[in-house]
């Protein structure tokens, strides 16, 4: 019986530790969200999201950060589109054209995993040096290119995962009807549509929140860009730059921008979870 006791004590002890660990995780989540919401709400106003920075904005005069919101939307929208156009064929090629044990597929997946792990600052630095090479200045175009490069691995990885569990019977059914692999693409795309949607939301979340890469390439500006060669402001940089100001009113705007960014990202995350849940339910 004594033996049992020590076994039980160890079990209980570690169970408690696990509960503590999970409580800590929840604590962090609540702390971050609460901090951003409580500070952001105080500074939030309608002007913030509907107005451009006015004259004297950076010494605390009126205005908002519409420039950053629109800039972020431009960059994210364009790079998501381009990213999808490049990623879907690659995922399709990996899963339908190549065999399961293909060497090329292995290397490609490894490469995308490595690119996925690459810090965005490296993308930024690399993108910046390329832009100098081509004589480009910080611009909307530069931001779009770098963010596209940044999210392609995310797209491919998460779509690849959704596709790999894809029932091969459906492929065979399509082939046996005489369809070429290219024509089968439509079938596959329809089948993995929820996977594509989740991947897209995930990528948008990463794209809109990334600061280190656009800092080098898209720059920052107070106006809304009207052409691809003009610099563009982004939300994360609006937070970052305004927070480094010593003036409390400007810092407040950083908190408001942080709130907007967090709300967007949370909505994307919830949307992704929702789709995944619906999707897996339909599968069963």
């Amino acid at each position: 019986m004594k033996v049992n006791k020590s076994k039980r004590i160890e079990e209980t002890l570690f169970k408690v530790l696990m509960w503590v660990a999970m409580a800590v995780v929840f604590g962090f989540v609540i702390s971050v969200i609460w901090t951003v919401f409580s500070r952001g709400a105080k500074a939030m106003s309608w002007d913030m999201i509907t107005k451009l920075p006015g004259g004297g904005f950076y010494i605390g005069k009126e205005g908002g950060f519409l420039n950053a919101i629109v800039g972020s939307l431009y960059i994210v929208g364009a790079s998501t589109l381009i990213g999808l156009l490049i990623s879907i064929p690659v995922v399709f090629y990996l899963n339908v054209y190549l065999k399961k044990d293909s060497r090329l597929a292995y290397v490609a997946r490894l490469a995308f995993d490595v690119l996925f792990g690459m810090p965005s600052i490296v993308y930024g630095a690399f993108g910046f040096s390329i832009m100098i090479y081509f004589g480009l200045r910080t611009s909307l175009l530069g931001g779009i290119i770098v963010i596209t490069l940044l999210i392609i691995p995310i797209f491919i990885r998460s779509m690849d995962e959704a596709t790999r569990n894809f029932p091969r019977d459906i492929l065979d059914a399509s082939f046996s009807l005489g369809a070429t692999r290219w024509e089968t693409l439509k079938v596959v795309v329809r089948q993995i549509a929820p996977g594509i949607a989740t991947a897209t939301l995930l990528s948008i979340g990463r794209a809109i929140g990334d600061a280190a890469s656009v800092m080098f390439t898209a720059g920052y500006t107070d106006s809304i860009p009207t052409s691809l060669s003009q610099p563009a402001a982004t939300l994360p940089l609006a937070v970052f730059f305004q927070l480094s100001s010593p003036i409390p009113e400007v810092q407040d705007r950083a908190y408001a921008a942080a709130l907007v960014l967090t709300v967007i990202v949370l909505l994307l995350s919830i949307g992704g979870r929702f789709i995944t849940n619906r999707f897996s339910k339909n599968k069963l």
Binding site: T35, V239, L266, S269
Partner: peptide
């Protein structure tokens, strides 16, 4: 219950963690 919490932590952008770090 736990997965969504982890989802949120994973989704938050770097700059938000920076804000949290500075404020808390």
């Amino acid at each position: 219950l736990v997965f969504p919490a982890l989802d949120i932590l994973a989704a938050l952008p770097s700059v938000i963690y920076g804000v949290w770090g500075m404020l808390v």
